[in-house]
């Protein structure tokens, strides 16, 4: 699992690439925590455009990000979520907690 971290104006974007399973998620929580501590974002966007597979390991990662953003009073969004990971998120009720988009956020496209 490859990770790109882009922080700008208190907006943090984490781009994920590869297979997000128990093996691939190793170290991801720590890297995400460090990035949130460093940028103290108002908005955390996790870009799933490069995720080719995801199981419940991804739910743990996203819930951890959601928890951190709630502590900071910010919000969290998931973008470019393909049907397979979307179904995993929906099964866990993640869609009730944050915005899940199949495409790009329009407000982000303006940047």
């Amino acid at each position: 699992m490859e990770l790109s971290i882009i922080g700008k104006d208190r907006a943090l974007e984490i781009q994920l690439k590869g297979e997000l399973d128990h093996h691939g998620a190793k170290g991801l929580l720590t890297q995400m925590d460090l990035a949130i501590e460093r940028y103290v974002p108002r908005i955390l966007t996790m870009d799933f455009g490069g995720v080719t597979f995801m199981d419940s390991s991804g739910i743990a990662v996203v819930l951890r990000g959601w928890q951190r953003m709630r502590e900071l009073g910010g919000e969290m969004r998931l973008t470019h979520v393909a049907p397979q990971p979307r179904k995993v998120f929906e099964t866990a009720g993640v869609g009730r907690m944050m915005t899940i988009n199949a495409g790009e956020e329009t407000e982000y496209a303006a940047h």
């Binding site: 419940s56 739910i59 743990a60 819930l63 099964t91 866990a92």
Partner: peptide, 10 residues
């Protein structure tokens, strides 16, 4: 915390 507890549900 690395596990979500959703494995059997899925």
């Amino acid at each position: 915390e690395e596990r979500s507890g959703m494995g059997f549900t899925i």
